[in-house]
């Protein structure tokens, strides 16, 4: 059975979809996958810095959701629960990577723009090239951040999530989340100044 969008579930909220999926309705799960696959891959890419790794982790996240659908309870938002699973899987993978110390080939080629899908109709070729380089350096700076800053920066400044939702996902107080975001931005700024010096 291929994952296809079902028109019946398009108007459902995330919580309604998971409730339907808990009743063994696979079409609801298909709708969830279609809604969250791009967001999830983007998040995981910014977290890991590698596209293939991000896709593998995204598949693992959806499989975990498929197996553990009964664990969701309507106490929190579905997105909160879903991103918690994704972050846990990403952290586990990061620890494994540290033990194995694997290196991605794309890291050696700053001109390699395969990791970045830019909309060509918005930017000029020069801007595209410039943006690609800048994005690369930003990504490098994000990869260099500490794990606790990287998570909150990505969720807030890339995924554009609310502070309350970030606090629920990270299971941290609201003040801690805000302070970490501020400190993470400062650190990122310093790294970017070191890595990339914009043309003045």
């Amino acid at each position: 059975m291929l994952l296809k969008s079902n028109s019946v579930y398009k108007g459902y909220t995330d919580e309604q979809l998971i409730a339907e999926f808990q009743k063994d309705k696979v079409e609801a799960f298909n709708e969830i996958v279609l809604r969250y696959k791009d967001k999830l891959i983007n998040f995981l890419f910014r977290y890991t810095g590698n596209r293939e790794e991000a896709e593998d982790l995204a598949q693992d996240t959806f499989l975990k959701l498929y197996k553990s659908k009964h664990l969701y309870k309507e106490i929190a938002k579905f997105s909160t629960w879903f991103y918690t699973i994704a972050i846990n899987i990403a952290k586990t993978n990061l620890r494994k990577k540290k033990n194995y110390s694997s290196i991605s080939i794309s890291d050696f080629d700053p001109d390699n723009e395969k990791d970045f899908d830019l909309k060509a109709d918005v930017l000029t070729p020069e801007e595209t090239a410039q943006a690609g380089i800048e994005n690369h350096y930003i990504q490098q700076a994000i990869n260099s951040l500490d794990e606790k800053f990287k998570e909150v920066i990505i969720l807030r400044d890339i995924q554009d999530m609310d502070y309350e939702e970030i606090a629920d996902i990270m299971k941290l107080p609201l003040g801690t989340v805000k302070s970490r975001i501020n400190r993470g931005r400062e650190k990122l700024k310093e790294l970017l100044e070191e890595i990339y010096k914009p043309n003045s």
Partner: peptide, 20 residues
């Protein structure tokens, strides 16, 4: 910094992602 991060390109899933 926030604006720069928000302007980062959004990564999309491959066509084979659903099949896999």
């Amino acid at each position: 910094i926030r604006e720069k991060l928000l302007r980062l390109p959004k990564i999309q899933a491959d066509e084979n992602f659903l099949k896999r």
